[in-house]
Each structure stands twice: as structure tokens, then as C-alpha cells.
Design a protein around this nucleic acid. Structure first.
Length: 879
RNA sequence: GCCCUCGUGGCGAAAUUGGCAGACGCGCAGGAUUUAGGAUCCUGUCCCGUUUAGGGGUAGAGGUUCAAAUCCUCUCGAGGGCACCA
């Protein structure tokens, strides 16, 4: 006997429902709907050639479950997706294959999209965006123009991290702590080059302070704070009497000023400011030292402790506190980029200064009591000594008093310093947004006028990096040579492009008006035949929309202000830990800028941020081709179905923790679904087992709460637990089974839809979306004949995913009897079962416990000192 | 070196946030079914104690508490971030 109702066939039901959902547009977010909005954002992927990683699947299917539950709770949910397709990897991949990046990117996107659809993810595909579309990056460029206009984008000759393999400059954030490039692992070198920078440092305080406004997990906000690295301290001026010059230093320990026995400046500082002051014989020595330390590529210098080196400049500075002159030295242990590039050395109370003083025989004077400075620097707290009027003060308690005194005496002033530096925003690569700037021979740097945006990336035959430090775009005369927007004279375009982080700065806004960008559905790529293939021609056939006449610039942000106001801020943003000090920080900065220029309505873009743990290979190592431990989600979907994969990835472990892949556990999840499928076919009764009904309501409570807290692993566990009870019971009433299938819907959407449509849809009358004011498409839609399966109501199909989320009955979750643990002196000696009404009567519970022979035995002949009762839970006799 | 997170069965883990440690799943063992394999179903599964009574147990050592996986101190170990940041 084969009963079809008992056989779970994911391969058949999954494509069927994916198809029907897509036709029904049931996941479309509705602008301005009256129900509460919920903006759920997952980081949009970079579409790599490797296809979707099971790590993506973990994040996306968990958030998909969250989105589905929120929809069922009547929120107007926006759950969009797009492609972050610019950047080095896309370019390197294209170079490797010898195919133009625009083509490989399109292929990769198609593959990603196919995989996502096969997982049944409920993205609103009508809002799909792509950062490499000129219609999109027009606005990435516009933001740059605004930054330039407000003085936040500037060009400067700076020391940059150069990757010899990728042949480009990198941001500090892209370089690992060992000096290697985070993408390719090549050791980077430092070199000087003219670069575009963004003044993220102007926002440092706000980026720290506004963390108070948002709910980020501790790990994330601490890491951001540390990265910005704000230190409180003071700047102190040291005069150089012989030369009527001065050196300003930053210190976090102004309290040790009396112990400052010499100054040290960075080689860069010395080169710029001191070389001209020193005596002839010192000059040669000094130049030599400076040259060596600067040419050292700074790798050694950046890497931890090495033997201190330095040169005495022969110059003297006046320490205003002790009223004496102290020597000025140069050493590469002082960093040019931090503070002012010069420090006051207090060897008694700083380990580095101590090592330096020991090596060169400089005086070490203790001004804080507590340590033994003959051995090692004392960096702890204590009482100030030998420091004039500060004697007797203690640090760090009296630090503000000291700084106040320093200000009063005119020695210096209170100051902050930051670890974070300005963001190096140019790359010498082809595959990125061109920086919309023009260099005029006469007028200098000129921004491209807004109406001329976008500056389109031209078609190029050779997009390999040149290695000269210039972008490949520099060789395309047709594109580079232009006229100055100001004087009309000869000019050249900026040939650097933006880093791959540029497009993701504002993508969550682009979703809100993707239709207005005119980019959804790959219009650009469909036209991508690269018609002329003329070097320097734009690769898109970008057409201006009808209302976008030439010379008339319509600002998309202002045009869509209402939508932005309706949807922003993002309610929950989910993504990887690895972006904490990169994308997450960058996009907060840019969003704050947009707030300042009144494009967005709130100071912070993301109200809540959570990160997921990575998925490791079954050997516990990072998944990688070279280890041969990569799991392809397609194979798992093919073997067990998308619902099994989704369920497993939620069940595998705590969402924020990394977990190793286990195929056996995947199988366990598949078995669970198969058993459950049978239960729905077999064990539906007229009436629910009373006990089971209680379990159901407990499960509703647990599942609702745990999804909200992103504890997906215990959600799955409690669903399994209920299923086990169900299997052992006499049966579940149809009404209760309908509630249970709704609980399953967010996690295993195809499975739930199949059973819901088969067994429950006809009798349902709750269609919450009828209450929405906006939609016309979304209300039950006609089901055509070609679609078999769904039961219909008046010819309309109502998805389980738009049913109302189950509510538990607080009366039904109370167990009729409760087990109380009974302890004697804190040790468990037995348990008693009591009616739940009795739990609030301590005296009755005490009597019952004492009557219990297993417990009585332990109490015999003892005088009870204390009886601690935790209602409904535990009783402890103490003697 | 500094900052953060974590350490619970053979494995992934759970524990109402201080209240019966090990839910749920995997694996394993025994049984049923099967010509056999697979699949499925039932039973068991922290350790010592043959069973019971009991004892021990959440990396280790202390502490707070009637009560600690959970809080505090130290030690060890793993992971992540920063790193000559004055």
C-alpha cells in the first residue's frame, strides 16, 4: 500500500511552491502600508565564481525564517537582496579567466540567484540592486561629490599600503596585522602616493557616542570603539629656545610631565621639521637614520617590539614643568601618523621610553610612587612625587585637576587622539566606480557636474593593473581626455576608482527606491553586448528616463524622501563579524554624512546589528578548495531538499557561533521532516490529547520567543520535541495541527505550504493581508490550471506564509502538575509532584515534602534551620 | 603585550539567566522487521557502584551563596580583534 500522503518528496514539492510564490509576488514589501514596517537587512553578497557558500545559506535561511515570522505577525516586512559586485576579487577572477568582469559578474549573479531561489528565500526580488550598474553607481558617485563639496573628500600625498600582487593601494582595514593583504595574503609594502581620502576622523566622536543609540552585540560595539581608539590626554608645547621653534606632543599621561627627561620625534617628523635646525655634523647622521628607517618599508617597524634605535639631534627642548632643557632624539618607535608624531619620553613610567633610555643612557626620573624603576618602568597608578605643586595628588583619580593646571599655566591643553585614520578611498584598478573628478591644467581639481553623472566605466581591452601605481583607465585617451567643467579648457579625468566598499555604503537606501533607479531586472546586463567595443566607450547603453531630460538633474534621494522616511532605519542588520571595522563602520560614517546633508532622517542606519558564526568544514578547518572540504549547497538541496538544508543550518549550533559541518546531522534533519510528514498524514484526530494541547501552546511560546532572539537551534529542538510528543499521543486535532504547521512555516516553507494547502487551507479564513491598504497584487491571486496542488478558495490561493502567526493561550501552557525538586542542605534528595494550584502555598508543599519517605529519611532527627522555597521549582531544607 | 569571547558526554549542543546539569539531534549498543544490505520502529546511552542504596561530575584551584555550568579571584587552554597608539 502506498499512501502518497505519507511520502515526503522535497524534490517535487519545492520547485512547485517556489514557482507559485514567485507568480503571486507574496513577498513584496509595500511602500507606505499602514501596518508597522520592519526592515530586515542581510549583507548583500559579492557574487563570486564559487557560488553560494553554505555560510551564506546559514545567514540567509535564518533571516528568511525571521522575515517570514514577522510577516505572519502582520509586519510590513522589507527583506531585500542585491549584488555587491565591484572590487578586486571580481577583477582578479575575470583576469584569470580572460573574460571581461562585466560578463563574469553577470554569470555569477545568475548562478547565485538560481541558488537563492532554490532555497526558497523570501527576498523581494522586485527591489534587486547591483552596485556595478551605472544607474546605481551614479549615486555612489554623487555621494562622493557631496563629500568633496563639504570638504570631506580630499587628495593628499600619503603613505599607503601597496599590494605588489594585486598592484593596488589598500585601506588600513584591508591589511592584516602581519602586514599581508587580507584578500590575497601577499605582504604589503608602504609607499607614498597621491590618494583620495575621506575624513572619517571628523566623525570619530559621533561614531563612538552614537553607539548608545543602537543595539549592537557587545562584541561589535567594543570592536568598533577599539578600532576608533579614542584616548584622552593633553598636548604639551616644548619650546626649542635656540631656534625659536617648538614641538607639540600628545600624551595620555600629562601627570608624568615632571618625569619627561627627553623628547622623541618620528623620522618623518624630523625630516620635515628638524633637519633644517640641526648642526652640520648632526645633519648627515640624522639624514642617514631617517633614510634607513623610511626605506625599511616599515614592515619591521610595524611588527611588534624590536631593538630600539635612534639618534640624538643635538637639539634641546624646554620642559616647562621642571624648567630645564631636555634633549630631542629621533627614533622610529615613534609613529608619524599618531598624535603629532612627537612624544615626551617618560622612561620611569613607560616601557618603550624605559627601553630607549636604558639603551642610550638617558636619565630616568620617577614621579609616581609605587614601582621599582631600577628594574622596569612603572605604569601603574599611585601618588605623584617630586612634581612641584602636584605632589600628593594621585593618578588616575586627579588627572582632570592636573590637566586643568597645565591649561592654567599655559603649558598645553586637554586633547583627544584617535587610532582611526582617514579612509584611503582610491584604488588603481579598473573594476570600480570611477571617481568623478577632473584635473584641469588651469583650474586644478574640479568635480564632475552633477548633471553629467554617472561617469561611466569605459570599455577596455586590457584591464590588468599597470603596476605603475596608475589605474588601467589612465591609458584610455578617449576616456581620460576631457574638458574642464569650469573653464572649458583641456583636462584629464581622475583615473583612480573607488574601493569595493563604496557601493555598500548606501545600498540599503537603494532598495527603497530601486524601481526609480531603473535597474531591477538587469536591464543593463541584458543590453550588455558591448556594442561598439571601442576602447573608451561606455559599456552600458544607459538611457535617460523620460522625465530625466538633459541638464535637468533629479536627485533620487530627495525625490524619494518619503519612502526613505517610511522604511528607515533598518530594524535588524545581520552580517559577518569580519565587517565590523570595515563595511559596518564605513557605512555608518557615510550614513551620518547623509544625515548631515539631510538626505536621511535618522542619525544611525541600523537599529540592531547581529552577526553569525562561520560554517567550517567537517574537519573543523575553514572551508577551502585546497583542503577539499567545501560543501556545495546545490548538492545538499539535490539530495535532501532545501527545507532540510535550511533546517540543519539553523539547528547546527548557536547562530553567532562557528560550527563545523556534519553530513550525519543533515540526515537527522531529513529524517525528522520525513517522520513529521507522515505524522501530518496519519495522526490528525477530532480532538487533541489534553497533554499534547498543552505542549503545543508551550511550543508556540518557545518558538515565538526564540525566533525573536535569533536562537534558531532551540527553535528546531522544540519543534522536534513537540513532534516526539505528538508521535506518542493519541492524536492532534485538525485546528491544532494547523497552528503547528504555521510554526513550521518560517523554517521549512515548502514543507509547510504543501501540507497547509493540502489539508488546511480550505477551512481557513484568516487572511491578514486583506487589512493592508496598499496592495492589489498580493491579495489572494488566481491560480492557473497549469499549477496543480494548491487548494483554492473561490479560485484564490492563500499562502500559509501570509497566515496569522499562532498565539499561545496563557491558561493552556500551565502544567496541571508540577515537579518540585527537594534538596536537603543543597543536595537533591528527591522530587515531589504537586497540583499546580498548590505551588503558591508554601506550607502545603512543605508538608508534602516532609511526608515523602525518600526525603523524610534525610530529615530524621535534624533541626531544620531554614526552609527555602522557590515556588513551582524547588525546596531546600537547611540545617 | 592589551581588549573581547569561549571552555559542559564519544560529537553538535541545551539549561526558564543563580534553582532537578546533559533537552533536542548525531553517534554507539541491544532488540523488532527484512532472504540480505539499506530504510524504518522500539529500548538503552555522563562516570563509579553487577542491581539497589549511594557517591562523583560543567578545563583546574579557591571564594561568595541555603543553592553556582551561570557571580568573583587566580591558573591553564582555544578562538577573534588590536598591536612600539605615547
Amino acid at each position: 500500500m502506498t499512501n502518497l500522503k505519507l511520502q515526503y518528496k522535497p524534490g517535487e514539492i519545492e520547485p512547485k511552491w517556489q514557482n507559485i510564490w514567485e507568480k503571486g509576488n507574496i513577498y513584496e514589501a509595500k511602500d507606505f502600508a499602514k501596518t508597522d514596517k520592519y526592515y530586515l537587512l542581510v549583507e548583500f553578497p559579492y557574487p563570486s565564481g564559487a557560488g553560494l557558500h553554505v555560510g551564506h545559506v546559514r545567514s540567509y535561511s535564518s533571516m528568511d525564517a525571521y522575515a517570514r515570522k514577522k510577516r505572519m505577525e502582520k509586519y510590513n516586512v522589507i527583506f531585500p537582496i542585491g549584488w555587491d559586485a565591484f572590487g578586486l576579487p571580481a577583477e582578479n577572477y575575470a583576469i584569470k579567466l580572460g573574460i571581461h568582469p562585466s560578463i563574469t559578474v553577470k554569470e555569477n549573479i545568475d548562478n547565485f540567484k538560481r541558488q537563492m531561489k532554490a532555497l526558497g528565500l523570501s527576498f523581494d526580488w522586485s527591489r534587486e540592486i547591483n552596485t556595478t550598474d551605472p544607474k546605481y553607481y551614479k549615486w555612489t558617485q554623487w555621494i562622493f561629490l557631496k563629500l568633496f563639496e563639504k570638504g570631506l573628500a580630499y587628495q593628499s600625498e600619503v603613505e599607503v599600503n601597496w599590494c605588489p600582487f594585486c598592484k593596488t593601494n589598500l585601506a588600513d582595514e584591508e591589511v592584516n596585522s602581519d602586514g599581508t593583504h587580507e584578500r590575497c595574503g601577499t605582504m604589503t609594502v608602504k609607499r607614498m602616493q597621491k590618494q583620495w581620502l575621506l575624513r572619517i576622523t571628523n566623525y570619530a566622536d559621533r561614531l563612538i557616542d552614537d553607539l548608545k543609540l543602537v543595539d549592537y552585540s557587545d562584541k561589535i560595539s567594543i570592536q568598533q570603539k577599539n578600532w576608533i581608539g579614542k584616548s584622552e590626554g593633553a598636548t604639551i608645547k616644548f619650546q626649542i629656545p635656540d631656534h625659536k621653534s617648538q614641538i607639540e606632543v600628545f600624551t595620555t599621561r600629562p601627570d608624568t610631565l615632571y618625569g619627561a627627561t627627553f623628547l622623541v620625534v618620528a623620522p618623518e617628523y624630523a625630516k620635515a621639521n628638524l633637519l633644517k635646525l640641526v648642526s652640520k655634523e648632526k645633519e648627515e647622521l640624522l639624514s642617514k637614520y631617517i633614510d634607513i628607517s623610511l626605506s625599511n618599508a616599515n614592515i619591521e617597524r610595524d611588527l611588534g617590539e624590536k631593538e630600539k634605535s635612534g639618534v640624538d639631534t643635538g637639539l634641546k627642548a624646554f620642559n616647562p614643568a621642571i624648567g630645564k632643557e631636555i634633549p630631542i632624539w629621533v627614533s622610529d618607535y615613534v609613529l608619524a601618523e599618531y598624535g603629532s608624531g612627537a612624544i615626551m619620553a617618560v622612561p620611569a613610567h613607560d616601557e618603550r621610553d624605559f627601553a630607549f633610555a636604558k639603551k642610550f643612557g638617558l636619565p630616568i626620573i620617577s614621579v609616581i610612587s609605587g614601582g621599582n624603576i631600577s628594574e622596569v618602568a612603572y605604569t601603574g597608578c599611585g601618588e605623584i612625587i617630586d612634581s612641584g605643586s602636584w605632589n600628593g595628588l594621585t593618578v588616575p583619580k586627579d588627572n582632570t585637576k592636573i590637566v586643568f593646571d597645565i591649561e592654567k599655566k599655559g603649558w598645553g591643553k586637554r586633547e583627544h587622539s584617535y587610532h582611526i585614520r582617514d579612509w584611503v578611498f582610491s584604488r588603481q584598478h579598473y573594476w570600480g566606480e570611477p571617481i568623478p573628478m577632473i584635473h584641469c591644467e588651469v583650474c586644478g581639481i574640479q568635480p564632475v557636474p552633477e548633471k553629467d553623472l554617472p561617469v561611466e566605466l569605459p570599455y577596455v581591452e586590457k584591464y590588468e593593473p599597470s603596476g605603475t601605481g596608475e589605474s588601467p583607465l589612465a591609458n584610455i585617451g578617449l576616456w581620460v581626455n576631457t574638458i574642464c567643467p569650469k573653464c572649458g579648457g583641456k583636462a584629464r579625468r581622475e583615473t583612480d576608482t573607488m574601493p569595493n566598499w563604496a557601493g555598500s555604503n548606501w545600498y540599503y537606501l537603494a532598495y527603497l527606491f530601486a524601481d526609480k533607479l531603473g535597474i531591477s531586472g538587469f536591464q543593463w546586463f541584458d543590453e550588455l553586448t558591448i556594442p561598439s567595443k571601442v576602447e573608451g566607450s561606455p559599456i552600458s547603453n544607459l538611457k535617460l528616463s523620460k522625465n530625466e531630460e538633459k541638464n535637468k538633474f533629479i536627485n533620487i534621494f530627495y525625490e524619494n524622501k518619503k519612502k526613505i522616511k517610511y522604511w528607515m532605519p533598518v530594524d535588524l542588520y545581520q552580517g559577518g563579524f569580519e565587517h565590523t571595522t570595515l563595511h559596518l563602520l564605513y557605512s555608518r560614517f557615510i550614513y551620518k554624512f547623509l544625515y548631515d546633508i539631510k538626505v536621511v532622517p535618522t542619525p544611525e542606519p541600523y537599529m540592531k546589528r547581529r552577526s553569525h558564526g562561520i560554517v567550517l568544514g567537517s574537519d573543523g578547518r575553514k572551508m577551502s578548495k585546497s583542503f577539499g572540504n567545501v560543501i556545495n549547497p546545490d548538492q545538499i538541496v539535490g539530495k535532501y531538499g532545501a527545507d532540510t538544508l535550511r533546517l540543519y543550518e539553523m539547528f547546527m549550533g548557536p547562530f553567532d557561533q562557528m560550527v563545523a559541518w556534519s553530513e550525519e546531522s543533515v540526515e537527522g534533519c531529513f529524517r525528522f521532516l520525513r517522520r513529521l510528514y507522515k505524522l501530518f498524514g496519519e495522526k490528525i484526530g477530532k480532538e487533541s490529547d489534553k497533554e499534547l494541547e498543552m505542549r503545543l501552546h508551550q511550543t508556540i511560546k518557545k518558538v515565538s520567543e526564540d525566533i525573536e532572539n535569533l536562537k534558531f537551534n532551540t527553535v528546531v529542538a522544540s519543534l522536534m520535541e513537540f513532534s516526539n510528543y505528538w508521535g506518542d499521543s493519541s492524536g492532534l486535532a485538525k485546528n491544532d495541527a494547523r497552528e503547528f504547521i504555521k510554526l513550521l512555516a518560517p523554517l521549512v516553507p515548502h514543507f509547510a505550504e504543501e501540507i497547509y494547502q493540502r489539508d488546511f487551507a480550505g477551512s481557513s479564513s484568516l487572511q491578514w493581508f486583506d487589512e493592508l491598504t496598499i496592495p492589489s497584487k498580493v491579495e489572494g491571486f488566481p491560480v492557473t490550471n497549469e499549477l496543480t496542488g494548491p487548494q483554492t478558495e473561490n479560485g484564490k490561493f492563500h499562502s500559509v506564509h501570509l497566515q496569522e502567526w499562532p498565539k499561545y493561550d496563557p491558561k493552556l501552557i500551565i502544567e496541571s502538575t508540577v515537579t518540585i525538586a527537594v534538596q536537603v542542605n543543597g543536595k537533591l534528595r528527591g522530587t515531589i509532584n504537586i497540583e499546580s494550584q498548590v505551588t503558591s502555598h508554601k506550607s502545603k508543599v512543605l508538608v508534602m515534602a516532609k511526608e515523602n519517605p525518600r526525603i523524610a529519611k534525610w530529615l530524621e532527627g535534624k533541626t531544620i534551620k531554614k526552609e527555602i522555597y522557590v515556588p513551582g521549582r524547588l525546596l531546600n531544607f537547611v540545617f
